[in-house]
């Protein structure tokens, strides 16, 4: 009984406390660089698309709001033919970013996504792709992977021996 009255009193006293609310549109809050807002697709340090269309973001997405189609350039470099995020379904959980093996998909501190028409919340690759590396500079998946692409032959990735010569008789 006493505790009830005490808590009523304590809550009542909160009347005189300062308010924590940030008056958002008039007053912009600070959002950390790793804040989970609008999703973008970044480029590698060479300026090429980072996304390799592995579908891991799509499968990690709990609301299934990412879809894409993989394709390859003539030299074997894989990239998404199209890439679509339905932001009207996105819950900004960041699981796609965690799943991404190439740092391609990243969440940004932009949260102002309001639209009057839901259809405008469907973002295609041209709306998603940015010019830079985003939060993770320096990493280039294709320098680590073992597959061959246009300007990288077999054995030229990081920590790779030159390709084995099948014709030699030397042990």
């Amino acid at each position: 009984m006493w505790s009830i009255i005490r808590s009523l009193w304590l809550v009542l006293l909160h009347m005189f406390w300062p308010r924590f609310t940030v008056q958002y549109p008039d007053q912009k809050p600070y959002l950390a660089p790793r804040y989970r807002g609008r999703i973008i697709l970044s480029r590698d340090p060479d300026g090429e698309e980072r996304c390799v269309a592995c579908y891991l973001c799509a499968v990690a997405c709990p609301v299934d709001c990412i879809s894409l189609q993989a394709t390859e350039d003539p030299h074997g470099r894989r990239y998404p033919e199209w890439f679509r995020i339905n932001f009207s379904r996105c819950i900004f959980c960041g699981l796609c970013e965690e799943a991404c093996p190439t740092y391609a998909i990243q969440l940004t501190p932009d949260i102002e996504l309001g639209e009057y028409n839901r259809q405008n919340l469907v973002y295609e690759k041209e709306n998603l792709l940015i010019g830079g590396t985003g939060k993770y500079p320096g990493y280039n998946f294709w320098r680590v992977a073992g597959v061959q692409i246009e300007d990288k032959d077999k054995g030229q990735s990081e920590r790779e021996a030159p390709p084995a010569d099948l014709r030699t008789l030397l042990p």
Binding site: Y55, A58, V59, C61, V63, D64, C65, I66, S67, L68, R84, I85, N86, S88, R89, V122, E124
Partner: peptide
């Protein structure tokens, strides 16, 4: 199965 809410969103 992925992309249910996105594959036809366009």
């Amino acid at each position: 199965y992925s992309g249910r809410t996105s594959m036809l969103a366009n």
